[in-house]
Design a binder for these strands. Structure first.
Length: 280
DNA sequence: GGACAGGTGCGGT
DNA sequence: ACCGCACCTGTC
């Protein structure tokens, strides 16, 4: 495979490693110290960091320019978020190279159904096996399968591929997606779209927020997982029950909530590598 | 070898 | 509406 250089971009607010490893995407691989391969649907790109420049190699530069969110001014966002509080300044400074990717909605639905009560290594393993088994061939490997193909499969297949008890969630949601008008979700506000997404089997509040943030570009949501619960209890005011933490952060951060969540998640995974509920 | 994973569905109050 | 609990399985 000989991919052409499609474009370059300044690396100060585009850190490829941080963007890919902050948990928003599962289909990527480290090819070398400063070179990563990234898959989205049936597309593929490689991003290499050379000095203060990121070089992106792909056959579809238009797709990946959008995918990497290169039209958004992250310097302004980091500046605004840094001004909020000392902890946000630290988290934003640490994660300032993270960009919220424009990922495919269907791929996000299945990926985050699989992510529930799971670890990142295993999530990647399961998704890779699903693509290998059901994805269409591309010049770069296997594509992410369509909902139609998943719907035509059985729960037993996904159990075989290691999905565990999520096997039936994957199939049930795929069958609901057949003939479903996902574009209609764009007309809803985030709260209404979240409620609708939660009618899919395997999609609860946290997974719905991830789908909204990573698959629908809704910056005004705040996915709360074990790491963010720990962040809340460590750095923010006490007193909210777990089910209220997302709303608390949404009210605090507004339209920057999703990006703030990524900064805090990545920051906590870096500096809070202790068991949950243990204050570092 | 046990605890833990980027939680959710379910049944019981 | 709000608990508490079981849950596949790879990794640490």
């Amino acid at each position: 495979m000989n991919l052409p250089l499609a474009f370059t971009y300044d690396s100060e607010y585009f850190n490829v490693k941080d963007t890919l490893e902050c948990g928003q995407i599962f289909r990527y691989k480290r090819l070398a110290e400063d070179r990563y391969g990234v898959y989205s649907l049936d597309k593929y790109a490689e991003a290499a960091t050379v000095g203060d420049t990121v070089e992106v190699y792909t056959d579809d530069g238009e797709y990946f320019r959008r995918f990497f969110d290169l039209d958004t001014d992250y310097a302004a966002k980091v500046k605004r978020i840094s001004a909020l509080s000392p902890i946000m300044r630290r988290a934003a400074e640490y994660g300032k190279g993270i960009r919220i990717l424009h990922q495919d909605l269907t791929e996000m639905i299945f990926s985050f159904i699989i992510s529930a009560n799971n670890n990142i290594k295993r999530i990647q393993l399961i998704i890779d096996r699903i693509c290998d088994r059901l994805g269409a061939d591309t010049p770069y490997g296997k594509a992410f399968p369509t909902a139609d193909v998943i719907a035509a499969s059985s729960a037993e297949l996904f159990a075989e591929l290691g999905a565990g008890y999520r096997d039936k969630y994957i199939v049930a949601s795929a069958r609901k997606l057949v003939g479903y008008d996902l574009a209609s979700l764009d007309k809803l506000d985030s709260a209404a779209a979240r409620k609708e997404l939660m009618t899919f089997m395997g999609v609860g509040p946290k997974v719905a927020d991830c789908i909204l943030l990573f698959g629908m570009r809704r910056g005004d949501v705040f996915p709360v997982d074990t790491w963010l619960k720990k962040v809340y209890h460590t750095y923010f005011e006490q007193g909210h029950k777990d089910g209220e933490i997302s709303t608390f952060f949404c009210n605090l951060f507004g339209d920057d909530a999703g990006l703030c969540q990524q900064y805090l998640f990545y920051f906590q995974r870096k500096y809070g590598q202790t068991t949950p509920n243990t204050v570092q």
